[in-house]
Nucleic acid binder design. Structure first.
Lengths: 135, 135
DNA sequence: TTTAAAGATACCATATTAGTATCATTTGTC
DNA sequence: GACAAATGATACTAATATGGTATCTTTAAA
Protein backbone atom coordinates (compact mmCIF):
# COMPACT_ATOMS: atom_id res chain seq x y z
CA UNK A 1 0.00 0.00 0.00
CA UNK A 2 1.94 2.90 -1.32
CA UNK A 3 1.24 6.18 0.41
CA UNK A 4 3.21 8.00 -2.25
CA UNK A 5 3.24 6.96 -5.88
CA UNK A 6 6.08 7.63 -8.24
CA UNK A 7 4.62 10.76 -9.78
CA UNK A 8 3.96 12.28 -6.37
CA UNK A 9 7.49 11.41 -5.33
CA UNK A 10 8.92 12.99 -8.47
CA UNK A 11 6.81 16.06 -7.85
CA UNK A 12 8.13 16.37 -4.31
CA UNK A 13 11.74 16.12 -5.44
CA UNK A 14 11.23 18.57 -8.28
CA UNK A 15 9.58 21.08 -5.96
CA UNK A 16 12.34 20.67 -3.37
CA UNK A 17 14.87 21.30 -6.08
CA UNK A 18 13.08 24.44 -7.20
CA UNK A 19 12.65 25.69 -3.66
CA UNK A 20 16.34 25.18 -2.99
CA UNK A 21 17.47 27.10 -6.06
CA UNK A 22 15.87 30.30 -4.79
CA UNK A 23 12.82 29.81 -6.92
CA UNK A 24 14.46 30.74 -10.21
CA UNK A 25 12.82 29.85 -13.48
CA UNK A 26 13.82 26.28 -14.37
CA UNK A 27 13.26 24.36 -17.58
CA UNK A 28 12.26 20.71 -17.71
CA UNK A 29 15.62 19.91 -19.30
CA UNK A 30 17.55 21.39 -16.39
CA UNK A 31 15.40 19.63 -13.85
CA UNK A 32 15.54 16.22 -15.44
CA UNK A 33 19.29 16.47 -15.74
CA UNK A 34 19.51 17.08 -12.03
CA UNK A 35 16.94 14.55 -10.94
CA UNK A 36 17.27 11.84 -13.59
CA UNK A 37 13.56 11.67 -14.14
CA UNK A 38 12.39 10.67 -17.66
CA UNK A 39 11.88 13.96 -19.45
CA UNK A 40 8.36 13.51 -20.88
CA UNK A 41 7.12 12.14 -17.56
CA UNK A 42 8.53 15.05 -15.63
CA UNK A 43 6.94 17.41 -18.11
CA UNK A 44 3.57 15.86 -17.51
CA UNK A 45 4.06 16.18 -13.77
CA UNK A 46 5.03 19.83 -13.97
CA UNK A 47 2.06 20.52 -16.22
CA UNK A 48 -0.23 19.06 -13.58
CA UNK A 49 1.39 21.19 -10.89
CA UNK A 50 0.86 24.20 -13.14
CA UNK A 51 -2.82 23.43 -13.55
CA UNK A 52 -3.13 23.06 -9.79
CA UNK A 53 -1.59 26.55 -9.46
CA UNK A 54 1.31 25.19 -7.44
CA UNK A 55 3.71 26.08 -10.22
CA UNK A 56 3.56 28.88 -12.73
CA UNK A 57 4.72 28.24 -16.29
CA UNK A 58 6.26 30.64 -18.75
CA UNK A 59 6.11 29.62 -22.39
CA UNK A 60 8.46 30.40 -25.21
CA UNK A 61 12.21 30.40 -25.45
CA UNK A 62 13.93 30.67 -22.08
CA UNK A 63 10.64 29.68 -20.56
CA UNK A 64 10.19 27.20 -17.77
CA UNK A 65 8.52 26.73 -14.41
CA UNK A 66 8.72 28.36 -11.03
CA UNK A 67 6.87 28.09 -7.75
CA UNK A 68 3.57 29.94 -7.75
CA UNK A 69 3.06 29.72 -3.99
CA UNK A 70 5.44 29.70 -1.05
CA UNK A 71 7.20 26.40 -0.40
CA UNK A 72 5.83 26.65 3.13
CA UNK A 73 2.31 26.36 1.80
CA UNK A 74 2.93 23.31 -0.41
CA UNK A 75 2.21 20.25 1.71
CA UNK A 76 2.68 16.55 1.09
CA UNK A 77 -1.03 16.19 1.62
CA UNK A 78 -1.90 18.57 -1.22
CA UNK A 79 0.55 16.81 -3.54
CA UNK A 80 -0.83 13.38 -2.77
CA UNK A 81 -4.33 14.67 -3.47
CA UNK A 82 -3.16 16.35 -6.68
CA UNK A 83 -1.67 13.16 -8.10
CA UNK A 84 -3.58 10.39 -6.43
CA UNK A 85 -7.02 11.88 -5.97
CA UNK A 86 -9.01 12.00 -2.80
CA UNK A 87 -7.26 10.75 0.28
CA UNK A 88 -9.16 7.69 1.42
CA UNK A 89 -7.66 4.79 3.35
CA UNK A 90 -10.93 3.07 3.68
CA UNK A 91 -13.53 2.51 1.04
CA UNK A 92 -16.18 0.12 2.19
CA UNK A 93 -16.36 -2.80 -0.24
CA UNK A 94 -19.62 -4.09 1.11
CA UNK A 95 -22.98 -3.21 -0.31
CA UNK A 96 -25.48 -1.81 2.12
CA UNK A 97 -27.61 -4.91 1.84
CA UNK A 98 -24.86 -6.94 3.48
CA UNK A 99 -23.58 -4.35 5.93
CA UNK A 100 -26.62 -2.25 6.82
CA UNK A 101 -25.14 -0.75 9.95
CA UNK A 102 -22.73 1.33 8.03
CA UNK A 103 -22.64 4.04 10.64
CA UNK A 104 -21.76 1.61 13.34
CA UNK A 105 -19.12 -0.24 11.30
CA UNK A 106 -16.18 -0.64 13.60
CA UNK A 107 -13.61 -1.29 10.92
CA UNK A 108 -14.57 1.98 9.28
CA UNK A 109 -14.43 3.85 12.53
CA UNK A 110 -11.04 2.56 13.49
CA UNK A 111 -9.51 3.03 10.05
CA UNK A 112 -10.92 6.54 9.81
CA UNK A 113 -9.33 7.43 13.10
CA UNK A 114 -5.95 6.33 11.79
CA UNK A 115 -6.59 8.19 8.55
CA UNK A 116 -7.31 11.44 10.36
CA UNK A 117 -3.98 11.22 12.13
CA UNK A 118 -2.09 10.54 8.91
CA UNK A 119 -3.80 13.41 7.10
CA UNK A 120 -2.92 15.75 9.93
CA UNK A 121 0.71 14.72 9.78
CA UNK A 122 0.88 15.01 5.99
CA UNK A 123 -0.61 18.47 6.09
CA UNK A 124 2.21 19.39 8.39
CA UNK A 125 5.00 18.32 6.02
CA UNK A 126 5.75 21.19 3.67
CA UNK A 127 8.28 21.48 0.88
CA UNK A 128 9.97 24.11 3.02
CA UNK A 129 10.31 21.65 5.89
CA UNK A 130 11.92 19.14 3.53
CA UNK A 131 14.58 21.51 2.24
CA UNK A 132 15.29 23.26 5.53
CA UNK A 133 18.68 22.51 7.04
CA UNK A 134 17.27 21.33 10.32
CA UNK A 135 13.88 19.92 11.22
CA UNK B 1 -4.01 4.66 -1.60
CA UNK B 2 -5.94 1.78 -0.21
CA UNK B 3 -4.79 0.63 3.19
CA UNK B 4 -7.01 -2.42 2.91
CA UNK B 5 -7.62 -4.24 -0.35
CA UNK B 6 -10.73 -6.16 -1.12
CA UNK B 7 -9.37 -9.57 -0.20
CA UNK B 8 -8.12 -8.29 3.15
CA UNK B 9 -11.51 -6.71 3.76
CA UNK B 10 -13.32 -9.96 2.90
CA UNK B 11 -10.96 -11.85 5.20
CA UNK B 12 -11.73 -9.49 8.06
CA UNK B 13 -15.48 -9.86 7.61
CA UNK B 14 -15.26 -13.62 7.28
CA UNK B 15 -13.15 -13.89 10.42
CA UNK B 16 -15.51 -11.59 12.32
CA UNK B 17 -18.39 -13.78 11.26
CA UNK B 18 -16.61 -16.92 12.42
CA UNK B 19 -15.61 -15.34 15.71
CA UNK B 20 -19.20 -14.28 16.33
CA UNK B 21 -20.66 -17.72 15.69
CA UNK B 22 -18.75 -19.21 18.60
CA UNK B 23 -16.07 -20.55 16.35
CA UNK B 24 -18.10 -23.40 14.95
CA UNK B 25 -17.00 -25.19 11.81
CA UNK B 26 -18.32 -23.21 8.82
CA UNK B 27 -18.31 -24.15 5.15
CA UNK B 28 -17.55 -21.71 2.37
CA UNK B 29 -21.15 -22.04 1.17
CA UNK B 30 -22.55 -20.92 4.51
CA UNK B 31 -20.14 -18.02 4.75
CA UNK B 32 -20.70 -16.70 1.27
CA UNK B 33 -24.44 -16.84 1.76
CA UNK B 34 -24.08 -14.67 4.82
CA UNK B 35 -21.51 -12.28 3.41
CA UNK B 36 -22.37 -12.19 -0.29
CA UNK B 37 -18.78 -12.67 -1.32
CA UNK B 38 -18.20 -14.51 -4.62
CA UNK B 39 -17.77 -18.14 -3.64
CA UNK B 40 -14.53 -19.03 -5.47
CA UNK B 41 -12.91 -15.81 -4.29
CA UNK B 42 -13.87 -16.45 -0.69
CA UNK B 43 -12.51 -19.98 -0.99
CA UNK B 44 -9.18 -18.66 -2.13
CA UNK B 45 -9.11 -16.24 0.76
CA UNK B 46 -9.90 -18.92 3.32
CA UNK B 47 -7.26 -21.18 1.83
CA UNK B 48 -4.69 -18.46 2.31
CA UNK B 49 -5.79 -17.96 5.91
CA UNK B 50 -5.44 -21.70 6.37
CA UNK B 51 -1.88 -21.69 5.03
CA UNK B 52 -1.07 -18.80 7.36
CA UNK B 53 -2.35 -20.94 10.25
CA UNK B 54 -4.98 -18.37 11.11
CA UNK B 55 -7.72 -20.80 10.14
CA UNK B 56 -7.80 -24.58 10.33
CA UNK B 57 -9.49 -26.52 7.56
CA UNK B 58 -11.26 -29.84 7.74
CA UNK B 59 -11.68 -31.66 4.47
CA UNK B 60 -14.35 -34.05 3.34
CA UNK B 61 -18.08 -34.04 3.75
CA UNK B 62 -19.26 -31.75 6.54
CA UNK B 63 -15.86 -30.16 6.40
CA UNK B 64 -15.14 -26.46 6.57
CA UNK B 65 -13.06 -23.88 8.35
CA UNK B 66 -12.67 -22.66 11.89
CA UNK B 67 -10.38 -20.29 13.72
CA UNK B 68 -7.03 -21.80 14.57
CA UNK B 69 -5.98 -19.06 16.97
CA UNK B 70 -7.88 -16.83 19.33
CA UNK B 71 -9.70 -13.90 17.71
CA UNK B 72 -7.83 -11.69 20.14
CA UNK B 73 -4.55 -12.67 18.52
CA UNK B 74 -5.64 -11.99 14.92
CA UNK B 75 -4.79 -8.38 14.14
CA UNK B 76 -5.55 -6.17 11.18
CA UNK B 77 -1.82 -5.79 10.76
CA UNK B 78 -1.25 -9.52 10.34
CA UNK B 79 -4.10 -9.75 7.84
CA UNK B 80 -2.80 -6.86 5.76
CA UNK B 81 0.62 -8.49 5.68
CA UNK B 82 -0.90 -11.86 4.79
CA UNK B 83 -2.77 -10.52 1.78
CA UNK B 84 -0.79 -7.49 0.71
CA UNK B 85 2.76 -8.42 1.59
CA UNK B 86 5.19 -6.39 3.61
CA UNK B 87 3.86 -3.22 5.11
CA UNK B 88 5.71 -0.36 3.48
CA UNK B 89 4.33 3.12 3.00
CA UNK B 90 7.52 4.40 1.57
CA UNK B 91 9.68 2.81 -1.05
CA UNK B 92 12.33 5.17 -2.32
CA UNK B 93 11.96 5.53 -6.07
CA UNK B 94 15.30 7.18 -6.54
CA UNK B 95 18.48 5.38 -7.41
CA UNK B 96 21.37 5.93 -5.08
CA UNK B 97 23.23 7.83 -7.76
CA UNK B 98 20.63 10.57 -7.65
CA UNK B 99 19.85 10.51 -3.95
CA UNK B 100 23.10 9.47 -2.29
CA UNK B 101 22.18 10.68 1.16
CA UNK B 102 19.64 8.00 1.64
CA UNK B 103 20.11 7.91 5.38
CA UNK B 104 19.48 11.59 5.68
CA UNK B 105 16.48 11.64 3.35
CA UNK B 106 13.88 13.70 5.13
CA UNK B 107 10.91 12.44 3.18
CA UNK B 108 11.82 8.91 4.18
CA UNK B 109 12.28 9.86 7.79
CA UNK B 110 8.99 11.64 8.03
CA UNK B 111 7.02 8.99 6.19
CA UNK B 112 8.60 6.25 8.26
CA UNK B 113 7.53 8.00 11.42
CA UNK B 114 3.93 8.06 10.23
CA UNK B 115 4.22 4.43 9.18
CA UNK B 116 5.38 3.36 12.61
CA UNK B 117 2.33 4.96 14.17
CA UNK B 118 -0.04 3.29 11.72
CA UNK B 119 1.55 -0.12 12.23
CA UNK B 120 1.22 0.26 15.98
CA UNK B 121 -2.45 1.10 15.66
CA UNK B 122 -3.14 -1.75 13.24
CA UNK B 123 -1.45 -4.23 15.55
CA UNK B 124 -3.86 -3.09 18.19
CA UNK B 125 -7.02 -3.82 16.20
CA UNK B 126 -7.96 -7.46 16.67
CA UNK B 127 -10.87 -9.44 15.28
CA UNK B 128 -12.08 -9.70 18.87
CA UNK B 129 -12.11 -5.92 19.19
CA UNK B 130 -14.18 -5.70 16.00
CA UNK B 131 -16.87 -8.12 17.15
CA UNK B 132 -16.98 -7.01 20.78
CA UNK B 133 -20.16 -5.21 21.81
CA UNK B 134 -18.36 -2.16 23.07
CA UNK B 135 -14.96 -0.69 22.20
C1' DT C 1 11.66 33.42 -39.19
C1' DT C 2 13.70 30.24 -36.41
C1' DT C 3 14.09 27.90 -32.23
C1' DA C 4 13.44 26.52 -27.61
C1' DA C 5 10.39 26.36 -24.47
C1' DA C 6 5.48 24.75 -22.50
C1' DG C 7 0.28 22.97 -23.55
C1' DA C 8 -2.66 19.30 -24.82
C1' DT C 9 -3.72 14.87 -25.67
C1' DA C 10 -3.59 10.25 -27.22
C1' DC C 11 -1.25 6.25 -26.80
C1' DC C 12 1.28 2.02 -24.86
C1' DA C 13 3.41 -1.50 -21.62
C1' DT C 14 3.42 -3.59 -17.31
C1' DA C 15 1.78 -4.72 -12.75
C1' DT C 16 -1.80 -5.28 -9.58
C1' DT C 17 -6.36 -6.38 -8.29
C1' DA C 18 -10.42 -9.01 -8.43
C1' DG C 19 -12.34 -12.89 -9.71
C1' DT C 20 -13.11 -17.64 -12.38
C1' DA C 21 -12.39 -22.39 -13.74
C1' DT C 22 -10.83 -26.86 -13.20
C1' DC C 23 -9.10 -30.91 -11.52
C1' DA C 24 -7.29 -33.51 -7.48
C1' DT C 25 -7.85 -35.08 -2.75
C1' DT C 26 -10.25 -36.14 1.46
C1' DT C 27 -13.97 -38.04 4.21
C1' DG C 28 -18.79 -39.00 5.79
C1' DT C 29 -23.00 -41.57 4.28
C1' DC C 30 -25.56 -44.93 1.81
C1' DG D 1 -17.14 -49.49 -2.50
C1' DA D 2 -19.56 -45.63 -4.81
C1' DC D 3 -21.14 -41.23 -4.34
C1' DA D 4 -21.50 -36.65 -2.64
C1' DA D 5 -19.81 -32.78 -0.38
C1' DA D 6 -16.32 -30.59 1.29
C1' DT D 7 -11.25 -28.44 0.79
C1' DG D 8 -6.31 -28.21 -1.86
C1' DA D 9 -3.82 -26.64 -5.65
C1' DT D 10 -3.15 -24.11 -9.50
C1' DA D 11 -3.78 -21.90 -13.82
C1' DC D 12 -6.29 -18.62 -16.14
C1' DT D 13 -8.84 -14.08 -17.31
C1' DA D 14 -10.72 -9.27 -17.14
C1' DA D 15 -10.42 -4.76 -15.52
C1' DT D 16 -7.95 -1.04 -13.63
C1' DA D 17 -3.98 1.64 -12.15
C1' DT D 18 0.67 2.91 -12.80
C1' DG D 19 4.58 4.47 -15.24
C1' DG D 20 5.99 6.20 -19.26
C1' DT D 21 6.12 7.73 -24.56
C1' DA D 22 4.92 10.19 -28.77
C1' DT D 23 3.24 13.87 -31.26
C1' DC D 24 1.34 17.91 -32.57
C1' DT D 25 0.11 22.82 -31.17
C1' DT D 26 1.07 27.27 -29.11
C1' DT D 27 4.01 30.83 -27.32
C1' DA D 28 7.67 34.14 -27.20
C1' DA D 29 12.69 35.50 -27.27
C1' DA D 30 16.57 36.12 -30.43
Amino acid sequence: MKLITRDTDYAIRALCCMAKSDNELVSVSDLCNKLRIPRPFLRKILQILNKKKILRSIKGQNGGFKLNISSRRITLFSLIVAFQGNFKFNECTFKKSVCPEIKKCKIRKKINKIERYVVKQLKNISILSLVAERG
